[in-house]
Design a protein around this nucleic acid. Sequence first.
RNA 1: GGCGCAGUAGCCAAGUGGUAAGGCGGCUGUCUGCAAAACAGCUAUACGGCAGUUCGACUCUGCCCUGCGCCUCCA
Length: 490
Amino acid sequence: MTLKVHNTLTRDKEEFIPRDPPKVGMYVCGITPYDETHLGHGRAYVTFDVIRRYLEYSGYEVNYVQNITDVDDKIIAKSNANRVTSNAIAEKYTQSYFEVMDKLNVKRASVYPKATEHIDEMVSWIVGLLDRGYAYVLEDGVYFEVDKFADYGKLSGKRKEEQEAGARIEVKGAKKNPLDFALWKKAKAGEPSWPSPWGEGRPGWHIECSVMSTKYLGEQFDIHGGGLDLEFPHHENETAQTEAFTGKVPWVKYWIHNGFVNVNKQKLSKSLGNFFTLKDVFEKFDPMVVRLFLLSTHYRSPINYSDVELAAAREAYGRIVKFVEDIDFLITHPPAPSLPAGRQGLKKRGGEEEGEVNVIEREDIDEELAPYRDKFMAAMDDDFNTAGAVAAIFDMIKFCRKTLDDGEAEKECLKLMKESVVGLCEVLGLKIENRKLKIENRRVEGLIVEREAARKNKDFKRSDEIREQLAEQGIEIEDTRYGTKWKAQA
RNA sequence: GGCGCAGUAGCCAAGUGGUAAGGCGGCUGUCUGCAAAACAGCUAUACGGCAGUUCGACUCUGCCCUGCGCCUCCA
C-alpha cells in the first residue's frame, strides 16, 4: 500500500515520496496570536496533527515546524487599544493556543519559530531579493515585484493578468502591479520596529514563512500546509519570493490545504461574528468529542458546525469508550475458574450444550482483526481519509463484540482487542480513557484527601483505617514531604 | 469579472465503471421485577436535474440548477 496525497500544486492525488526518506520536512502556517483560538484553528491543526501522526505511524521521521506570527497589524492594534506591549498580547494568546491544543491532543511541533526572533534573517532575504532584481523600494516599504517572477500564480492557478480586471484588488498607485506585496513595512509612530537598510520598520507577512521554513527545513522540503484561505495570496507569495531567492524549484514538494469550518454553511469569520472559540466549545463538549467531530469529515471538505452534529459525535465517541470499558471489565473480572486451566473467558450466552465452549485464542483474533487494520490503513493512505478510518474502527468494534458474544475470549485476546482499537484511535490522536477507572481514581484521591485531613488533626486512627482500606484494595500509599503518592499494586 | 469546491437516506458523512462504508436518529429485539442504560438486528431500487459515452454510471463528458470559497486580514 502506498500513501497518496492531494497536492494543491498539481491539483492531483500523488504518491507520497519524500525527498529524503525516512525524513519528512513539514511546515504548517501557525497562528497570529491576537485573539482566542477558534474552531477553525482547531480543524487546521488537528488535520496536520493527524497527518503528522500517520506519517510517523507509517515509519517516517517528521520534522514539524510551525511558526508564530508575533508581529502583525492586528496585534499592534490590540496592544494600542489595551495599552500593553504587542509582545504581551502575543504571549497571552500563544499561551492560550497551547492550552487549547493540548486539550485537543495535538502533539507539539518540533519547533515554533517566532517572527520577531528572525528579523535579521528576513532583512538579509530582502536584501538578496533586491540584489536579484525581484524587489523595489517605495516610500513606505520594500515590495516584491510579481511581474519579475514568471511562475507567479502556479500554486493557486490564478493568472495575474486576470486578477487585474477584478473588483477586489486594491488600486494603490505606487506599486508597479497591484499584486506586488510588502516585504518590509516602514514603521509608523507607535509601532514596534527593527532597524534595516530602509530605516526602522517590520517585515511583511509572507517573508517570515519563507525565511523560517527554509531555516529549519532546508531550502527545499516536503510538505507545506495551511488553511485553504492561505493558498492565495499567502502561499503564492511565499513560493514566489522563496524560489526567486534560492533559485531552487520546487521549493515545496507537496502543498496541503484544509477546508473551512462553516456555521450555517458560511465560513467561520470574525466579520460575520459567527465564530466559536475552542474554549466556548469545550464548555459544551469534551475536546475528544470535538476531535472526533473534526475527523468525521475529510480534511479538504467544508465541515458545518452544529450542536446536533457535535452531540452525534459525543454519542459515537461514547461508544468507543464504552467498548474499552467493557473489555477492561472482562479483563478484571474473569469468570469462575470452572474452565480448563489457562482458559479464561466469557460464559457463552446463548444456550448451547453445556461444557462446550468456543474458546477464542489470541492468534486467531490477531488474524481476524487484520482486515480492519487494513481498512484503516487503506483509508488513511488515500489522502488521509479519516472518515473512512473512523468507520474501520467502528467495524472493528462491532466485530469484537460479535466475537465476544459467540464464545470465550482469553485474557490475552481481550487485551489484543483493546490494544487494537485503542491503537488505531491513537493514530488519529483520539484518547480513549476508561471513565470508570477515572472515577475510581477520583475515589482514591478523595480518600487520600480525607486521610491527610485526619493526619493533620492527629486522628491517626482514622488515617490508619483509610490506609488499611486502600491496602485491601491493592493500593499502596507513600507519604512524602510533597504530599501523598499512591499506586496500584501490580 | 477571474479561479476553484460541493450537492449521497430524517441528519452528518465515506466511496467504487458493474448496482451504496460508518456515525447520529428511528423501529424491533435481548437483558431487567419495571424502567433506564447497554448491547444486537433492521433502517437509501438510490447518489441535484437533463442529455451523452458505455454492455453497464452515483462513479466519465457536456450543459443546467443550487450552495459555498478564494481573488482584502483570516486556519
